[in-house]
Nucleic acid binder design. Structure first.
Lengths: 120, 120
DNA sequence: TTGTACTATACCCGATGATGATATAGATGG
DNA sequence: CCATCTATATCATCATCGGGTATAGTACAA
């Protein structure tokens, strides 16, 4: 069944937590708790998603079609029946690219005005 | 009088509107309406700050010490008594630099995972 | 001098997003 | 069998954001 998606731009700017979750799911599918750990690891502990932020973000992202829940566990060894795995959709990747574009433009303007050093 | 400021990091992530306002004030002091126009121009009309967002953001930024209201108009020619001019504080520049650092790190992680193209 | 279009600041209110606290329960290991 | 970690989930509350609206000074020309 063909589903209509809105323009990726209409979802911008993305909430910060949403972008972090997209990055965490980029290289492989993960369950919720693993996303939380991955974001913390990638940011050297600077970003600690609370459970409330994580699961309310995931719910919204499911509704928006940015991520999807996987039917089969990608890790058959795991005995943990509680885990629910999520993966990026093609639309999710498009939106991430659009948000990256927006952030890049914002940073480049900040550099032009001299607000931040040219080299970071 | 010496005023204590919190660590710039404690204000992160900045609301998107706040960062745009910091950029608009980077090269010169501006009054509210001029900030609105500058942000729209810089973003090719993509970001249109509503009056509500603009003035509630400015109020918060004044309280946080990111911007300050200028006593004297930097434009003595202007006959418009309604205009209120704002300028960046040193602390505002520090916070902008910290936010830029955060955004840059987020983008670099997104590139590492292959979520977005290396070259944007 | 009147009107009307534009500039400028300001606030109310509803929608959305972020987060601390809390709840529930399976997994793990001594 | 008990403590601790893992894992998902919701609630209540606060912050952010923007549409709509109000108010009023400015500019300009009919």
């Amino acid at each position: 069944m063909k589903v209509e998606y809105p323009s990726p731009d209409s979802l911008l700017p993305l909430p910060a937590a949403t972008f972090h979750i997209l990055v965490a799911l980029a290289d492989r599918d993960r369950h919720g708790y693993s996303i939380m750990q991955d974001v913390a690891a990638r940011t050297s502990g600077k970003v600690q998603l609370s459970a409330a932020t994580l699961y309310s973000s995931i719910r919204r992202m499911l509704e928006q079609g940015l991520v999807e829940e996987l039917r089969d566990s990608p890790d058959p060894d795991s005995q943990d029946q509680r885990r629910r795995y999520y993966g990026l959709t093609a639309f999710g990747r498009k939106v991430a690219a659009a948000e990256a574009q927006r952030l890049t433009a914002m940073l480049s303007q900040a550099r032009e005005t001299g607000l931040i050093p040219k080299k970071i």
